Amino acid sequence: MKNYIEETYKQVRLQEGKRVIEQFLIQCYLNPGIPTKEVARKVLLPVPLATAIKKELIKAGALRQGSGIECTEGGNEYVESVLGYGGLDMELLQMLLHEGEVWKKELADLLAVMDEIFSARPQVDVLIDQSKCTVETSLHRAILCLRDQALLGKKVLCVGDDDLVSVSLGLLLKRLYPTGGKQTARIDVIDIDERFLSYIERVAAVNDLPITCHRADLRQPLPKRLHGKYDCFFTDPPYTLQGMSLFMSRGISALKKQKGLSIFLSFAHKSPDFTLAMQQEFVLAGVTVREVISHFNEYEGAQMIGNHGQMIVLSTTEMTMPRMPHAFRDALYTGEEKQTLRTYRCKRCDESVRVGSKGKMTTIEELKKRGCPRCKNKTFELISRKRL
């Protein structure tokens, strides 16, 4: 079968890369008879450039021009077989691609299934900056990936996955391909926490999801077998500058060497000075900011970040490269960077308990689990905090 995208790219050397040609072809597949101006708007291209792409795709045999643009029989077969759109529930897909929150109503039954799965996930380990996003947030990330045309037929990587984004992606794919179809997308997870890896593997096995897990300490470079394989990645890294840079670096090393690939970075809302430092890291890594969605992420019990965080969608460029290709030995997690000793008072008996790296217990979660040393009550109030 002809590689229409490659043939067109040879004729129209786009600075935007091959991915925009793929997006152009998919828009014509999803919207037969679409005007050239509308395709240009959807793929964010000037009309003359969109017209040049259209002409080359027509010449290659993938499109034909009528009252609008539509795929030929060969173009349809290419999108379905090669790009992975065969066997899709097209009505559901079109509904989910619309902006807004219609997906919450349309996938209400899936959210109910996910509630059960998410309620049984392992307890977070705050020492490595884990926090649980809500079920809706996890599925919303998967919807974002779908709308970005970075899911169907793609290889997706989750760099750390205590939010079970891999499970959300897998369940969404299963719903979109009700009869199995030609579903070719694959989802990989890398994480240091064996508890989450084991749990994701069990959920994937029970639900027949296309997920593969790899244990990896991100302080070390990724295994060579994972380099240059993926079309996008998700990460919700430690909320330190070096943590963000390290997780980004590992994810970038796993991406294919192409322009325009997506990076879905979840991060806390930060001060202007910290945000500037983040943006400088993006520049040094050779990635551009495509979109910033405030309050996109909602977390359970993450008061330190106000229970909400932003979604930053980044794009690769010709200059994209890992900022930290070697082993990392500096402070990484919030607790390492800002060690504190906190004192909590039991709400029942007023017993004081010190929590922190030099306290009786390391985290408030551990204290709540064990209960007050005197009366075993599990509710406390913070009365003091001291930086070590």
Rank of each mutant, 00 (worst) to 15 (best):
I263N: 00
R385H: 09
L97C: 01
M311F: 05
L92R: 10
R215M: 13
I69H: 00
A150C: 14
E336A: 11
S131E: 09
A277N: 03
H214N: 12
E7Q: 06
M278L: 15
E16M: 14
Q183T: 07
D129W: 11
Y239Q: 04
I53S: 10
L276F: 12
Q23G: 02
T235E: 10
Y239P: 00
I34T: 08
V124C: 00
R141G: 03
K369I: 09
R195N: 12
L139D: 01
C232E: 03
E116N: 04
G66W: 02
D208M: 11
G33P: 02
P373F: 04
I58F: 04
L30V: 05
S253L: 08
P237S: 10
R147P: 01
T340Q: 05
K360H: 06
Y230H: 03
I263W: 11
I305A: 06
F118M: 10
V20R: 05
E56L: 04
A150Y: 00
I34K: 00
R348K: 12
M321I: 04
S168Q: 12
F328T: 03
Y9D: 10
V206S: 03
R175E: 07
T179F: 07
S67T: 15
I190T: 14
G356V: 05
Y239N: 09
D148I: 04
Q220T: 08
T334K: 14
L96H: 14
K105H: 11
H227V: 12
